Amino acid sequence: MRLFPALFLFFSISVYTQNTLSLEEGSASPRADLSQISWMEGHWRGEAFGGITEEIWSPPMGGSMMFSFKLVVEGAVSFYELGHIRQLDDTLVFELKHFHGDLKGWEEKEEVQRFKLVKTEGNRLYFEGFTFEKVSGDEINIYASIQQEDGTQEEVTFNYKRPTE
């Protein structure tokens, strides 16, 4: 019976890490355009990192969809992200910058976090380390592969719903 727990752990880990992907070195991103992710438009709210998360996405305009992210823990802003998914030639790229609650940047002035498109599949768009999933018209998931302080990667699920208030 020792085999069952080992198999369960193996399949749990396999399923757990299937939500985010990486682009193989030397591979090009597939063709895509903003119409394939325009369903992200709107106001979304969820819970993660011990607080309330909020994302607001603009409609496609000028070759991009702009977003803002906010994490509020114990009534105070922990950090923000600002960024966009933009059309780059015949594909998409996801780019962002982080800011502390006082708007002091994490990255250097000219530095931008950039994630290339890996693939599109049904209701999902896979960027390097991030996956955007449409669950329904009022619910989405964003899966993020986040590097921990010890160097390991952890996949975090952000489940968002449209606020009703």
Results as ranks from 00 to 15, higher is better:
residue 146 I to H: 07
residue 112 V to E: 06
residue 126 Y to D: 04
residue 14 S to C: 14
residue 71 L to H: 12
residue 73 V to Q: 12
residue 15 V to Y: 10
residue 3 L to Y: 12
residue 119 K to G: 07
residue 70 K to T: 15
residue 20 T to F: 01
residue 46 G to K: 04
residue 124 R to I: 00
residue 126 Y to R: 00
residue 160 Y to L: 13
residue 6 A to H: 11
residue 146 I to Y: 06
residue 93 V to P: 03
residue 34 L to Y: 08
residue 110 E to K: 12
residue 130 F to K: 00
residue 65 M to N: 08
residue 139 E to F: 04
residue 147 Q to I: 05
residue 106 W to P: 01
residue 25 E to D: 11
residue 84 H to D: 15
residue 27 S to G: 02
residue 127 F to P: 02
residue 2 R to W: 02
residue 135 V to S: 04
residue 79 F to D: 12
residue 84 H to K: 12
residue 108 E to M: 09
residue 148 Q to Y: 01
residue 134 K to G: 09
residue 68 S to N: 14
residue 80 Y to L: 12
residue 155 E to G: 05
residue 7 L to E: 13
residue 59 P to H: 06
residue 10 F to Y: 14
residue 31 R to N: 14
residue 23 L to D: 04
residue 91 T to Q: 06
residue 28 A to S: 15
residue 86 R to P: 05
residue 143 Y to I: 00
residue 127 F to Y: 07
residue 11 F to D: 11
residue 162 R to N: 08
residue 40 M to D: 02
residue 109 K to V: 09
residue 87 Q to S: 15
residue 117 L to A: 07
residue 98 H to L: 01
residue 78 S to E: 13
residue 147 Q to M: 12
residue 70 K to V: 10
residue 62 G to V: 09
residue 103 L to F: 14
residue 14 S to A: 15
residue 71 L to P: 06
residue 30 P to K: 01
residue 110 E to H: 13
residue 17 T to Y: 06
residue 44 W to M: 06
residue 123 N to P: 11
residue 89 D to G: 09
residue 95 E to N: 08
residue 15 V to W: 10
residue 92 L to N: 10
residue 20 T to S: 04
residue 136 S to K: 07
residue 89 D to I: 03
residue 54 E to P: 01
residue 45 R to Y: 03
residue 127 F to C: 02
residue 111 E to W: 07
residue 9 L to P: 01
residue 2 R to L: 14
residue 94 F to P: 02
residue 71 L to F: 04
residue 126 Y to L: 02
residue 89 D to T: 11
residue 19 N to V: 05
residue 17 T to M: 01
residue 44 W to Q: 03
residue 93 V to L: 12
residue 92 L to K: 01
residue 79 F to Q: 10
residue 63 G to L: 10
residue 76 A to T: 14
residue 144 A to I: 14
residue 30 P to M: 00
residue 80 Y to F: 15
residue 146 I to M: 14
residue 67 F to T: 10
residue 140 I to S: 08
residue 124 R to C: 00
residue 112 V to L: 09
